[in-house]
Amino acid sequence: MKKIKLTVNKKEYMLEIKEDTRLIDLLRDVLGFTGVKEGCGEGECGACTVIMDGDIVNSCLVLAFQADGKEIITIEGVESEEEIHPIQQAFLDVGAVQCGFCTPGMILSAKALLDKNPSPTREEIRAAISGNLCRCTGYNKIVDAIERAALYLKRGK
């Protein structure tokens, strides 16, 4: 067993983990953040995307011990107590969610983009979500939603 300390959604955890535990398994099975989805388990689909120290990563490809000392944000960590995040609101308003399996990863990829680039072009949005597969929407609605989210975020400021 290995002792690690990490912050998930602004809360600090001291944990003892098995050496071969992946970050996704730690987040889902130990900490209960089931908004992190496992699709392919090989880094192809992006359903397991989380934000680690400000950058998106596939949590199925990170071993939990590597995340020692890191700050992680999952979909559960983007909303405040009172309301959902403007990106989530934009996804709802535009109708960018169908089955919903890719949505947590999509929203986190969108958040990592908008945190660094508040006014992205459609091309930049497409590039930013190129590691997230969606088999329902055809992506257009998702790109629309992220464009609208950029507006919501600007208005909110």
């Binding site: 880094g43 992006g46 995307t49 950058d55 998106i56 990563v57 596939n58 490809l61 990170v62 990829s109 590039a127 930013a128 190129s130 590691g131 997230n132």
Partner: peptide, 9 residues
């Protein structure tokens, strides 16, 4: 290479 997620790691 890969995707933004892969390139970050």
């Amino acid at each position: 290479v890969g995707s933004p997620q892969i390139r970050n790691r």
